[in-house]
C-alpha cells in the first residue's frame, strides 16, 4: 500500500520534472531559432534529411490511401447512384483529416525518430559537449535548424500527400471503375471550400509539425547517454509523437469543424 503510494509520488515528481525541463528547453530554444534562418546552409541540409528523404514514403502512402478511398467510396456510393461524389469524398477526407494526420504519423516514424536518434547519439558520444567546448552553441547549430526544417517540411509533404491521394482516387474511380471524369472534378470543385477545408487542413499540419519538432528534439536532448537510452528515446518519440498527433487532431477538429 505504502509502496504503491510511493510509486505514485515518484511518478508525479518525474512528470513535473520533465514538464519543467521541457519548458526550460523551449525557453532556451526559442531565441536560438532565428539562427536557423541566418545559417541557410544548415537549414537546407536538414530540410534535405527530414524532407526530401521522406518524399518516397509520403508519395507512396498518399497514392495508396487515395486509391483505397476511391475504391471504398465507390462501393458505398454506387448503391445510391451517386458515384460521382467519390471525388468530393476523397478530396474532403484527405484535406480535412487523412492528409495532415497520416502524413504526420509517417513523418514521426520516418523523420522524428531519426532526429531523436541522431541527437541522442550526439549526446552519448559527447559531441554536443565538444561543440560547447569550442564555444559553438548546440541550440543554434544543432537544434534550431532541425526544428525549422520540421516546421517547414511537414506542411509541404502534407500538400504532396493530399495531391497524390486525390490523383490516386481519380485513377481508381475514373480510370478503373468508369466514373465520369467531368462530374468527378466539378462535384469536387463545387463542394471543397478553400478557407474551410484547405486552409484548416494546413493549419492542422503546421500544428502537428510544431508538436513533432518539440517531441523529437526534446526526447533527443533527454536521452540517457547509453545505447539503450538512445533506443528508449527513439521509441518514446514515435509513441508520444503519434499519440500527440491523434489527440491534437481531435481537439483541432472539434474547434474547426462544428
Amino acid at each position: 500500500m505504502l509502496k504503491a503510494l510511493q510509486q505514485l509520488g515518484a511518478w508525479g515528481i518525474n512528470l513535473t520534472r520533465s514538464a519543467g525541463r521541457l519548458g526550460l528547453f523551449l525557453l532556451s530554444l526559442l531565441p536560438a531559432l532565428p539562427y536557423a534562418i541566418w545559417r541557410v546552409s544548415l537549414l537546407v541540409k536538414q530540410t534535405f534529411n527530414v524532407g526530401t528523404l521522406s518524399l518516397p514514403i509520403i508519395m507512396t502512402a498518399g497514392l495508396f490511401v487515395g486509391m483505397v478511398l476511391g475504391l471504398q467510396g465507390y462501393n458505398v456510393l454506387v448503391d445510391y447512384n451517386s458515384e460521382e461524389a467519390v471525388g468530393t469524398m476523397t478530396a474532403l477526407s484527405l484535406l480535412r483529416e487523412l492528409g495532415p494526420v497520416v502524413a504526420a504519423l509517417l513523418f514521426v516514424g520516418r523523420a522524428g525518430s531519426a532526429l531523436t536518434a541522431e541527437i541522442g547519439l550526439m549526446r552519448s558520444t559527447e559531441q554536443l559537449s565538444a561543440l560547447e567546448m569550442m564555444a559553438v552553441d548546440p541550440l543554434k547549430f544543432i537544434y534550431a535548424p532541425r526544428f525549422m526544417a520540421v516546421l517547414i517540411t511537414l506542411p509541404l509533404l502534407t500538400l504532396i500527400f493530399i495531391a497524390l491521394g486525390i490523383w490516386g482516387g481519380w485513377l481508381v474511380a475514373v480510370g478503373w471503375l468508369g466514373v465520369d471524369d467531368g462530374a468527378f472534378w466539378s462535384q469536387m470543385h463545387a463542394h471543397v471550400d478553400w478557407r474551410e477545408d484547405v486552409v484548416n487542413g494546413m493549419i492542422k499540419s503546421v500544428a502537428f509539425a510544431l508538436l513533432i519538432a518539440v517531441v523529437a528534439l526534446f526526447q533527443g536532448s533527454e536521452t540517457a547517454p547509453t545505447s539503450e537510452g538512445v533506443s528508449y528515446a527513439t521509441t518514446r518519440t514515435v509513441v508520444h509523437g503519434s499519440l500527440g498527433v491523434l489527440g491534437l487532431d481531435f481537439i483541432l477538429t472539434a474547434l474547426m469543424f462544428n
Binding site: 478530396a91 484535406l95 500538400l159 495531391a163 463545387a190 471543397v192 478553400w194 484547405v198
Partner: peptide
C-alpha cells in the same frame, strides 16, 4: 500540389 489543390480541387 498546392497549385492543383487551389485551382482544381477547391474554389
Amino acid at each position: 500540389s498546392l497549385f492543383v489543390i487551389a485551382m482544381k480541387v477547391s474554389n
